[in-house]
Each structure stands twice: as structure tokens, then as C-alpha cells.
Design a protein around this nucleic acid. Structure first.
Lengths: 227, 227
DNA sequence: ACCTGAACACCGTTCAAGT
DNA sequence: ACCTGAACACCGTTCAAGT
């Protein structure tokens, strides 16, 4: 028999940043961000809570490392696309925006984790550099490229935040769509009533693609007017 | 002398939802969302923490009421604009988006508060109905209007979340721009290096206007192609 | 060098008991 | 009816002491 309380089969289970971040992300997926406490994480690692502070100065520091790790997926997708036969620039930008959303969706509360930290690690910077590069190579000047980077990433995090919030009722609200439906039919909101089917649709990919299309279309217009 | 520990000069200071939400928003502005605890709020109200639960089932319930109150400002601005000599539709939509950002900026951590709740009260619905109405009256069909509503609000919350996060270093990071600058110059991120001046600009209004312009321009193109 | 044990100063929430 | 007091089951973080 292996000792029942040991999370890995090895003996003393030395701590390090990589293993800690990995376990933390697994715990995040299981229980969500609100349930991710230093004590529970320490438990999963077979260690006392205080031991975590030898590798992370603070819980915020750990969360930042988790967000940075999460963005590795987006950065990898970005790098892979870079070596691909040069697409139309707007397809490349769209691909990167989708990669960011996918990376955030890959972990429960991923968007909230990302929005709540300020990762400036290699993965985050690699992704941002790649997206900015796609814009500059498309002919946007440095200022426009930087602003477009922000517009795209802020829309993506805003959207995904909402998507994941309605996905996992988390710590609150009823069935979500029911709440809105009920409130709208109770009060007098003619425009919300008319658009209710779309407003309560759970096809988030289509919602995301529409907003992304708007941004890309706007970029297209801006680019033409300066070329 | 008035008793030094009484927050208002009155005597027993009966509790109600309105006064509680008001005091909570004042406390939010003073100390930020992380420091807004039920105990501290109770203290400011001259009451025990447990008493709050007679008016709010849970802390999340209180936060939702705060967010809903916050959106009153945006809804009022929306209503005022509705009776104004009919602007160009894109100016009206832009006005509403700006009103939302302004409402979120009106309180410390306002965007985080709004993003972390799911207010479906009269203020929130009034604002959303108004924005959806502006889009429908511009000629967008119900589906497009609903999707555009989401694109605009998600961009606005995403942007303002970031804006307020870098405004108040909150619970973490150094001077913010310094972190990015340092990381970029240390590693090899040519596109971020080239765009660094804009990336580290703290003129958030211009950043916001650029993203908003992109969305409106995209909407303009979409509208023309169906008209 | 790395972790444990124990403590400090808090949390949100519940609920009998008082008034 | 509304609030207090006190408790329950937690938190993040620190730090002497052990190994």
C-alpha cells in the first residue's frame, strides 16, 4: 500500500515553482479560483502552507505565475502561426485573438485569473510581441499597432470573463439566462425583449467572433485610409 | 462633542439597503475592493457584522446591489441622451459606451466590482435597453444589435478593468510601466520594444477611444453592407 | 537549506439570546 | 422586528524551531 495521503508516490516531494504552479492549476480546474487557497494547495502538495512562501513571496505572486504559465499555450499557437505560409494579415490577427481566448478557456476561471494579475513573463511577452508584430507587418504604425493590441486583448478578456462567469454560476446567481429573461419580461425593456433570443444564447464562440470581426473590420478601414 | 465613534450624528442608525450600499461605495472609494469586508462595513455603519445579513443574503448580494447602483449614472446619461436632438447613430452609441466607462471609473475598482457581479436591476437593464435601442434604430437587426451590445460592453469592461488595475497598483506589482519596460528591454521582443512608448502611455482615454472607434467603424461597414 | 508548528490578525456566515 | 454576542470554520502570512 502507498501512503494514502501522499499526492505523488515519491517520498518527501520537494517543492519547486514548476510543480507548485502545475498543482495549483489542477486545483483551479477542480474547484475554481475562490476555492484555491494556500492551505488547500499546500495540502495537495503534501506540505504545510508556510512552505509555499519559500517559492512565492505572496499569493498574488503565485497567481501571476499561474497566469504566465497559462499564456504559454497562446504564445505557442502564436509562434506556430508565425512560421506558417503568410496568411492574410487579418486572418493571422484573428488566429492570435482566438488563441488567447482558447488559452483562457483552458482553465476554469482562466480569464478571471488573467485579468487579476499582471504577468510580464516570457510567455505573455512572446504572445504580445507576436500579435504586435502581425499588426506592424500589416502596415500599421507603431502607435496603431500598440492600440490595436490593447483593443483586441481587452475585448478578448472582457468577453471570456463573461463567458466563464455564466458558464460556472460560481458563487451566486440562478441559471443565469433565466434571471435576465425574468427581469426583462417583468419590466418594460422593449429592445431587450426583442433581442432576448440572441442575448440569452450560449453560443459564445459566435458572440466572440462577431466582436472580433467588428474590430478587424475597423482595422481594415483604418489601414485603407492611410494606404 | 458628538460621540467620536458614530459615523452619522443620528442615534441608533437603523439599517436599510440604500444606506448600506451608499456606505459600502464610500468605503470602496476609500480602501478598495479587497479591503471591503462585511466587518469593516458594519463598523462604518455602527452595527455588528451579522446585522448586514438581515438585508443582504450574502456578500455577493451586497456587491451586486453596489454594481447596480453604480450603473445608475450610466443609465441616467443614456436616458438624457435619448431625448436629445437625434444625433448620428454612431455618436449616440459612442456616447453610451463612454457613459459606461465613466460610471465604472466613478468608483475605485468599479470595473472589477461590475465584472464580478451579474446585476440585472433596473439601472443595468435601462442602460442595456437604451444601447440596444440605439443600435436597432440605427438599422441593425435584433441579432446584430444584441451581439454589438456585448462587443461594446465587453470591450469597455475589459479596458476599464485594465485601466483601474494599473491606476491603483492594488495588491501587487511595482510602478507598472516600469515592469513592462524592464521586461521588454531585458528580453528580445522587437515589436514590443518598437511600440513601447504607446504601450506604456497612461492616456487611457485615447486607448479607449481607439478601440471604440474600431468597433464603431466595424459596425458602420456591417450596416452598409446590409443596406 | 528547507520544512513544520504554531501563532497573529483577520475573514464570511449563522444563530441563540436579548431589547 | 431588529440587532448583539459569540461562535464556527476558515483565511494569508510570519517565524522560531527542528531536521
Amino acid at each position: 500500500m502507498t501512503p494514502p495521503s501522499s499526492p505523488t508516490r515519491g517520498r518527501p516531494a520537494r517543492l519547486d515553482r514548476a510543480r507548485t504552479v502545475h498543482t495549483a492549476l489542477a486545483l483551479l480546474d477542480e474547484s475554481g479560483l475562490d476555492a484555491l487557497t494556500m492551505r488547500r494547495l499546500a495540502d495537495a502538495l503534501g506540505v504545510q502552507a508556510g512552505a509555499l512562501y519559500r517559492h512565492f513571496a505572496t499569493k498574488q505572486d503565485l497567481l501571476t505565475a499561474m497566469a504566465e504559465h497559462m499564456l504559454g499555450q497562446a504564445a505557442d499557437a502564436a509562434d506556430a502561426a508565425e512560421t506558417t505560409p503568410a496568411d492574410d494579415w487579418s486572418r493571422r490577427v484573428a488566429h492570435l485573438a482566438r488563441a488567447l481566448r482558447t488559452a483562457l478557456l483552458a482553465h476554469r476561471d482562466g480569464a478571471r485569473l488573467f485579468a487579476g494579475t499582471h504577468a510580464t513573463g516570457p510567455n505573455t511577452l512572446r504572445f504580445a510581441d507576436n500579435l504586435t508584430g502581425a499588426l506592424r507587418q500589416a502596415g500599421f504604425d507603431d502607435e496603431q499597432a500598440a492600440r490595436a493590441l490593447y483593443a483586441i486583448t481587452h475585448f478578448t478578456t472582457g468577453h471570456t470573463l463573461e463567458e466563464q462567469a455564466t458558464l460556472h454560476p460560481g458563487t451566486g446567481q440562478p441559471p443565469e439566462a433565466g434571471l435576465l429573461r425574468e427581469a426583462v419580461t417583468a419590466g418594460t425593456y422593449p429592445h431587450l425583449a426583442a433581442t432576448l433570443p440572441t442575448l440569452t444564447s450560449t453560443d459564445y464562440t459566435t458572440h466572440f467572433e462577431y466582436g472580433l470581426h467588428l474590430l478587424l473590420s475597423g482595422l481594415h478601414t483604418t489601414r485603407q485610409s492611410t494606404h
